[in-house]
């Protein structure tokens, strides 16, 4: 039996055929589409290394059955940079040394992107509230303990991105 699904993957429409309904979105990305930037850490939704944006919202790809994603838009770490130009969140992670081994970093960056897009700014003027960033990023573990740098990077990326939005609106 085969399960056809349509995905918009990093902006590109893809028609895929799954041969098994058990395939998670994470395994689809890594094992079938060679997009290995999204990492498999715990495979249980606890570490956040597999975080991707599904229809613009950050989710754990390891707990998401691919067959249920028919019609969805998926954004992975591979879709962030424009050629050699890094995304503001990626630049902020480098600037603040927000990683050591780097294994959790794609998930951290996708989670940060989701966070900036959802709660913080909508809560109103929370731009400098590190406590809200720590709470909002609690679904991403870093065993190297780069949390201080990650928090600083998310705050800076949020400022950069909201300034860019304001400049575009002006």
């Amino acid at each position: 039996m085969a399960w056809p699904i349509s995905l918009t993957l990093n902006g590109v429409a893809r028609e895929l055929v799954l041969d098994d309904p058990r395939i998670t979105l994470l395994d689809l990305l890594r094992e079938r589409l060679d997009l290995t930037g999204t990492k498999k850490g715990c495979d249980r939704g606890q570490c956040g290394a597999c975080t991707v944006l599904l229809d613009g919202r950050r989710v754990n790809a390891c707990l998401t059955l691919a067959v249920g994603c028919d019609g969805a838009a998926v954004q992975t770490i591979e879709g962030l940079a424009q050629g050699d130009v890094l995304h503001p969140v990626q630049r902020a992670f480098i600037a603040h040394d927000a990683l050591q081994c780097g294994f959790c970093t794609p998930g951290q960056i996708m989670s940060a992107l989701g966070l900036i897009g959802e709660g913080l700014i909508r809560e109103g003027g929370a731009g400098d509230d590190a406590e809200r960033v720590r709470e909002g990023m609690s679904g991403n573990l870093c065993r190297c303990g780069a949390y201080a740098g990650i928090t600083a990077a998310v705050l800076e990326a949020q400022r950069t991105m909201s300034e860019a939005t304001e400049a575009a609106a002006a």
Binding site: G45, G48, T51, L54, R57, R58, V59, N60, L63, T64, S111, G114, L115, E118, G119, G136, M137, S138, G139, N140
Partner: peptide, 9 residues
């Protein structure tokens, strides 16, 4: 409850 990723799903 849970994490932002899980609450989103």
């Amino acid at each position: 409850g849970a994490s932002a990723q899980i609450r989103n799903a």
